[in-house]
Amino acid sequence: MFPQLIDTRPLRRAVDEALNWVVRNWGGELEAAAYPLLMLLNAIEKLLIATPWWLIVVILAGAAWLATRRWQLPMVVFVSLMFLGVMDLWQDAMTTMALMIAATITAIFASIPIGVWMSRSLRVRQVFTPLLDLMQTLPSFVYLIPTVMIFGPGKIPALIATIVYAAPPLVRLTDLGLRSVDPAVMEASRAFGTTPTQRLFGVQIPLALPTILAGVNQTTMMALAMVVIASMIGAGGLGYQVLQGIGRLEVSRGLFAGLGIVVLAIIFDRITQSFGKQLQARIGLMEAR
């Protein structure tokens, strides 16, 4: 046994009391601040559930065809979505997709500005890098403790925990993509008298877009990876089916719900990757000319 050098109980009590103080004094304000996230999630979920299944199949298969201009990926998307419908997992899949989309949209709006800020300031990068390391390595269950204490079980803590877990890759890849733009291109844009804002939106972001889209891909995959854990606090969806399979020892329920999560991951991973490769090819042609 490691010798007890100090008594850590006062420190633990201080941390618990600080969080309890936040819940007592700021719980209502924090719930009000997070209410737009709940509205976004509910709106996306209602839209997906109300949309006819065949229209969702057409939209996703069409996106796959636009991304590749080949029949193979649309066929994979079609068969995967048919699997969800045949196995009676469609509504749960739409609930899971809504959580993933809401978390990804929120992460995009929060992460890209931070990534731009990091790319422009070494000091900001030095501050945010350890924080991003902590967000990526801290066990996801740890996020659930304070969020459940503040908001109670439900969709808001599940969405917030998913956003915190999924956002770091997009921040990092936005920063990396913007800093990787060819200095000669940036110098040429300065020679034409462009402002920093014009260089950012007219040069850096378009050239860094494939890398940023790779960050969106990683954020989407990490959001899907959180669905089982998020279902423990009321997110529902396919993750809840997995938990029910564990609780009832129903192998088939857990297996098919797990395969449903894999299906969604394959669909969104392949589509976003294909769009990224398409952008890289276009930028390469532009540079070659």
Rank of each mutant, 00 (worst) to 15 (best):
G260S: 04
W71M: 15
W90A: 09
P74E: 01
T211A: 08
G193W: 02
I145Y: 03
V127T: 14
A33T: 08
Q244S: 14
S80N: 05
L73P: 02
A67G: 01
A64L: 03
P153V: 15
V227M: 00
W53P: 11
V227I: 07
G115A: 03
T51Y: 04
M286F: 10
Q241D: 13
G152P: 04
Q136H: 03
A188H: 08
A34S: 05
G62V: 06
P168D: 02
P74C: 07
I56E: 12
I266R: 00
L213C: 04
W117A: 14
E187N: 12
V262K: 06
A161Q: 00
D88L: 10
G239V: 01
G237W: 03
Y35A: 15
A166T: 04
V15K: 07
V228T: 11
W26S: 14
A158P: 12
S119M: 04
L255Y: 04
T219L: 05
I150T: 03
G193E: 07
D133G: 12
A43D: 10
L264F: 01
G115E: 02
G154V: 02
A188Q: 13
L122M: 12
G260V: 03
L238Y: 02
L285E: 15
V58M: 14
A161C: 13
V127Y: 10
A288I: 04
G62S: 10
T129C: 09
V181R: 05
I101K: 08
A166Y: 01
A61L: 06
L176E: 14
A61I: 04
V142G: 09
I56N: 13
D175L: 11
A288G: 09
V15S: 10
P146Y: 02
M226Y: 02
R120Y: 04
V127C: 10
M135Q: 13
W26C: 12
M222E: 07
A281N: 09
A32G: 07
G177V: 01
I105N: 07
V216G: 00
V185C: 11
G177Q: 03
P183C: 10
G193A: 11
L259I: 15
T137A: 12
A61D: 01
A166N: 07
Q204R: 09
L11Q: 06
Q136N: 13
A14E: 03
P3E: 01
A167V: 14
Y240S: 14
L200Q: 02
L279Y: 01
E45V: 06
E31W: 05
F151T: 03
T106Y: 02
Q273Y: 07
T96I: 04
G28D: 01
L30G: 02
P52Y: 01
G254R: 11
Y143K: 05
R282F: 00
L249G: 12
L41K: 06
N25G: 09
T174M: 07
T129Y: 07
R172Q: 11
I44V: 15
T219N: 05
L243I: 15
P206L: 02
L144A: 05
W53T: 15
F2Y: 10
Q136E: 14
E187I: 11
A214M: 11
A67P: 03
I163A: 09
T51D: 11
I108V: 15
P3N: 00
G202M: 03
M100T: 12
M1Y: 04
G245V: 02
R179S: 14
V216C: 05
M1D: 12
M232E: 08
Y35H: 12
N20D: 14
W65H: 11
Q204L: 06
S180G: 15
I229P: 09
L38D: 13
A34H: 01
